[in-house]
Computed example of a mutant assay.
Amino acid sequence: MKNWLIFGVVFILSLSLVISVLVLWKANAPFNDIEQKAEELALDTKALAVISESYVYNGNKPYITVFGVDEYGKEKAIFVPMSLEENSMQEVFLQDGITEQEALTVFTKETSVQKVLHTKLGFEEPGAVWEITYMSESGSLNYVYLLFEDGQWWKRILNL
């Protein structure tokens, strides 16, 4: 009887683990697919020669931000719209703005933070922006947007 009980518990835990992994894998599949297509578009249009990283940025309009180096060796970020329209792509040279670390430094000087959840470079109506998502000391979710060009505050969404 004891062996059947142990078998049943192990079986249910194993089944739960397998189902959880499959659900997470399937949930990420659309993001992985669109990121791959955006990377291919950035390479095909010769906007980038080598790609180092990409992620989905959800602002007013969703973009895939693709980082890499162009054929002249300059580091760039390409913002590919979810529609994958070549003529709607935007780009910035990373040397023309503040880095992620500089954005975090500007942000932490003026804000009390419990935990920074993520920092993403995205594209909004004023141009390239750093989106910083964090938990405040009171435990609320907050978003802060800093302009990529000079680190000026653009928008804050607080206490969600």
Rank of each mutant, 00 (worst) to 15 (best):
T45N: 11
S52M: 09
Y55K: 10
Y55F: 08
V56Q: 06
Y57C: 07
N58Y: 06
N60C: 00
N60A: 05
P62E: 12
Y63L: 04
T65R: 02
V66H: 07
F67W: 00
G68F: 11
V69W: 08
D70Y: 00
E71N: 11
E71D: 07
E75R: 09
K76W: 03
A77Y: 01
F79L: 03
F79P: 06
V80N: 00
P81T: 01
P81I: 03
M82N: 06
L84M: 05
E85T: 05
N87M: 14
N87I: 13
N87D: 08
S88P: 01
M89P: 01
E91T: 08
V92H: 01
V92P: 01
L94C: 04
L94K: 02
Q95G: 15
D96P: 00
G97T: 02
E100Q: 11
Q101K: 15
Q101G: 10
Q101W: 12
A103M: 08
V106Q: 14
V106S: 14
K109C: 09
V113N: 13
K115M: 11
T119P: 14
T119L: 15
L121K: 10
E124F: 08
E124N: 04
E125H: 09
P126I: 07
P126H: 10
V129E: 03
V129I: 11
E131W: 14
E131K: 11
I132K: 10
Y134I: 14
M135D: 15
M135H: 15
M135N: 15
E137C: 01
E137P: 00
S138Q: 09
G139D: 03
S140T: 09
L141H: 13
L141A: 05
Y143S: 07
V144R: 12
V144A: 06
Y145C: 08
L146F: 09
L147I: 03
D150V: 13
D150M: 07
G151V: 11
Q152W: 03
W154G: 00
